[in-house]
Amino acid sequence: MFLIYEYMERGSLFCILHDDDEAVELDWAKRVNIVKAMAHALAYLHHDCSPSIVHRDISSNSILLNSKLEAFVADFGTARLRHADSSNRTLLAGTYGYIAPGLPL
């Protein structure tokens, strides 16, 4: 069995933001488009999948960009399925600094 993924030419958002030459290319309009794409992706995972999927580790490392700087969610290693009859609570997971502020560390 194999998994085949679309190649994301630009790599992670983290790498682009930490490279001064590439970060200049991300003007505010492109950054807003990335945020909107992530909001749509998370809304899809939470509301349109059955059962819902909770990613639990959205960070700049788990956002990949293609050649047109279109954003995609990646790295579902800590993701969990959420069944309608279960609690929202899971064990704490995620990248330090990106964990929801309401969760105890």
Rank of each mutant, 00 (worst) to 15 (best):
Val32Asn: 12
Leu81Arg: 12
Glu9Met: 03
Ser67Val: 03
Ile34Asn: 10
Asp48Ala: 08
Trp28Ile: 02
Met38Glu: 09
Gly94Tyr: 00
Ile34Met: 09
Glu22Thr: 04
Thr95Met: 02
Pro101Phe: 00
Ala43Lys: 14
Gly11Tyr: 01
Thr95Leu: 07
His18Glu: 04
Cys49Gly: 12
Asn66Asp: 15
Ser86Cys: 06
Lys36Val: 15
Val54Lys: 15
His46Asp: 10
Leu91Asp: 01
Gly94Pro: 05
Arg80Trp: 05
Pro51Gln: 10
Ala79Trp: 13
Ile4Val: 15
Asn66Thr: 01
Arg80Gln: 13
Ser60Met: 07
Ser62Tyr: 03
Gly97Ile: 01
Thr90Asp: 10
Ala84Thr: 03
Ser50Met: 10
Ile53Asn: 12
Val73Cys: 15
Leu26Ala: 15
Phe14Ala: 07
Leu13Pro: 03
Tyr44Cys: 13
Leu65Pro: 00
Val54Thr: 14
Arg10Cys: 02
Asn88His: 15
Ser62Gly: 14
Cys15Gly: 09
Pro104His: 12
Arg31Tyr: 08
Phe76Arg: 08
Ile53Gly: 11
Asn66Glu: 06
Leu105Asp: 10
His18Leu: 00
Ala41Ser: 15
Gly97Lys: 04
Leu26Ser: 14
Leu81Thr: 04
Glu25Asp: 13
Tyr98Arg: 06
Gly11Thr: 02
Arg31Pro: 08
Met38Trp: 04
Ser86Phe: 11
Ala79Ile: 05
Ala41Arg: 08
Leu92Phe: 00
Met8Arg: 02
Thr90Phe: 15
Leu45Gln: 11
Ser12Pro: 04
Ser67Leu: 00
Ala23Pro: 10
Arg10Gln: 11
Ala84Gln: 02
Gly97Met: 04
Tyr5Val: 00
Gly102Met: 10
Val54Phe: 12
Ser60Arg: 06
Ser86Glu: 12
Gly94Lys: 10
Glu6Val: 06
Met8Val: 02
Ala23Tyr: 05
His46Cys: 12
Ser67Arg: 05
Met1Tyr: 05
Gly102Ser: 07
Ser87Ile: 08
Thr90Lys: 14
Tyr98His: 05
Leu105Asn: 11
Tyr5Gly: 05
Gly94Ser: 07
Ile58Ala: 10
Tyr98Pro: 03
Leu69Ile: 06
Leu64Gln: 01
Asp19Cys: 06
Asp48Trp: 09
His46Trp: 12
